[in-house]
Design a protein around this nucleic acid. Structure first.
Length: 286
DNA sequence: ACGAGGTCCTGCGAGC
DNA sequence: TGCTCGCAGGACCTCG
């Protein structure tokens, strides 16, 4: 599932290949991915437009068009984006949502098996509203431990849910939330507003470190994720807890536990390394 | 403002 | 073998 590092990888791969290119004859194969725009308006809005830049905001891909509008693609669970030279494979044909020929036998392809992904087409004011609803970028140089601590302080919900809340913090999904909490030695179910001081600073550093390392490894491929060049990422070999339930903790050897108690999402953690906090004490009986 | 639950969507694996 | 069913889950929604 593409989170911040995966989307960042796709942007780095594709930005040089799409910038300055013109969308010739786009085809929208599935209309149910559109949000806030009709099929007709969407196609009219991108046809013949030049892509001035491709960038990332949280987990969203932002195509800035020469009209000043932005095509915003959210990959969600199974979406992928690539520039394909020549003919599409049978699988790409089958799951293509949007194909946009760029000239020179190259085609921008957005494919998505489950079609939970979305496409918006936003003018400048709408983009302003859209991006304002998304929280701080965790890798922004100005996003320091004090700002992060303030985010935690603002909620009594489980810390894992808070750091995955896109309105509070941008780009962290289930994989990196699990990893960062393990690295920081923090119980995922602990109330966010009870975490401060050194523990909050540890989590702040862990979130940034795990995201940075995952970008360096070109993302995590558990199932569907592919880079902008169609390859697998490399960070799945560096995961400490995600998808490792029942396996021994890399730090202490305790068998990793799993629960769905936090927001219904799979949470994997080590009782020993994350069960107890200096200021909070262990939390059991979830 | 909170938690719980529904919705979207399809492939996959378990169970019968 | 062939069927049904539960699950995967990010973002958004409604309800109490």
């Amino acid at each position: 599932m593409p989170e911040l590092p995966e989307v960042e990888t796709i942007v780095r791969d594709l930005a040089p290949r799409v910038s300055g290119r013109t969308i010739r004859h786009p085809r929208l194969h599935k209309s149910d991915v559109l949000r806030g725009v009709t099929r007709r308006t969407f196609l009219a809005g991108i046809t013949g437009r030049r892509i001035d830049s491709l960038s990332r905001r949280a987990k969203h891909l932002i195509f800035l068009l020469d009209s000043g509008r932005r095509m915003v693609i959210q990959l969600r669970m199974t979406g992928s984006l690539l520039v394909k030279r020549g003919r599409l494979t049978a699988e790409q044909e089958r799951y293509a949502v949007l194909t946009a020929p760029l000239g020179g036998r190259e085609t921008l392809v957005f494919q998505d098996v489950r079609r939970l992904g979305t496409i918006h087409l936003l003018d400048e004011p709408a983009w302003g509203t859209y991006t304002a609803r998304i929280g701080a970028e965790p890798l922004d140089p100005g996003f320091d431990a004090a700002q992060f601590t303030a985010v935690l302080r603002g909620s009594s919900q489980a810390v894992k849910k808070v750091i995955m809340d896109q309105q509070k913090l941008a780009g962290v999904g289930n994989i990196y939330a699990n990893e960062a909490l393990f690295r920081a030695g923090i119980d995922p179910s602990r109330r966010a507003d009870r975490i401060a001081g050194p523990a909050a600073a540890r989590l702040h550093a862990a979130v940034r470190a795990v995201l940075t390392e995952a970008i360096d490894a070109r993302g995590t491929t558990v199932r569907d994720y592919r880079t902008g060049t169609g390859q697998r990422g490399g960070f799945q070999f560096s995961l400490d807890v995600y998808d490792r339930a029942g396996e021994p903790c890399v730090r202490c050897g305790t068998l990793l536990a799993t629960t769905h108690a936090i927001d219904g999402r799979q949470t994997t953690f080590c009782w020993h390394c994350q069960g107890a906090e200096p200021s909070g004490g262990p939390r059991r009986g979830r």
